[in-house]
Write a protein that binds this DNA or RNA. Sequence first.
DNA 1: GCCAACGTTGGC
DNA 2: GCCAACGTTGGC
Length: 136
Amino acid sequence: MNYWLVKSEPYVYSYSDLVRDKQTFWDGVRNYAARNNLRAMKKGDQVFFYHSNEGLAIVGIAKVAKEAYPDPTAEGDTWSVVDLKPVRKLKNPVTLDRIKAEKSLAAMELVVNSRLSVQKVGEKEWNTILKIAEEG
DNA sequence: GCCAACGTTGGC
DNA sequence: GCCAACGTTGGC
C-alpha cells in the first residue's frame, strides 16, 4: 500500500465535489513527474486531498478506485488519469502552515516542491498527518 | 545537447 | 496581483 497526495483548487474541484460525485477520474495532469506518480498508483492506495490556492490544507482522504489509463481529455496515451473515490473527510483540515511547523514533515514534497500536483507521501508522514488531523 | 525565454503553478 | 520556482520549448 502506498500513500499519495493530490492537489486541487477547490473552486475547480473540491473534496466535497468528490463526495458528491462518489467517484471521479483525476484528469488534467500535464507534468511528467506527476503523471509518473499517477501511473505508480495501485488500486486501494490512499490519497490525501489537498486544497491549493484557497484553504491551503489537506481536507480529506480518497482512494484509488482504478489504476492509470489514458486521459480521455488528452490526445494519445501520453497522459494518464486514475479514478478516485472519497474515503472520509479529515476531522480537522491539516493546513500547510501546520505541516511546515512540524519538523518531521519538513521533507514532504508539499513543502520542498510545492508545485508538483501529484506527490508520494511516506508512511510516517501519512500517519503524522492523520494524527494531527485527529488532535486538531 | 545546452541554455535562454517563456509559461504555469501556487504561496503570499 | 505579484513573484519565485520550476518545467517546457525552441534556437543554435
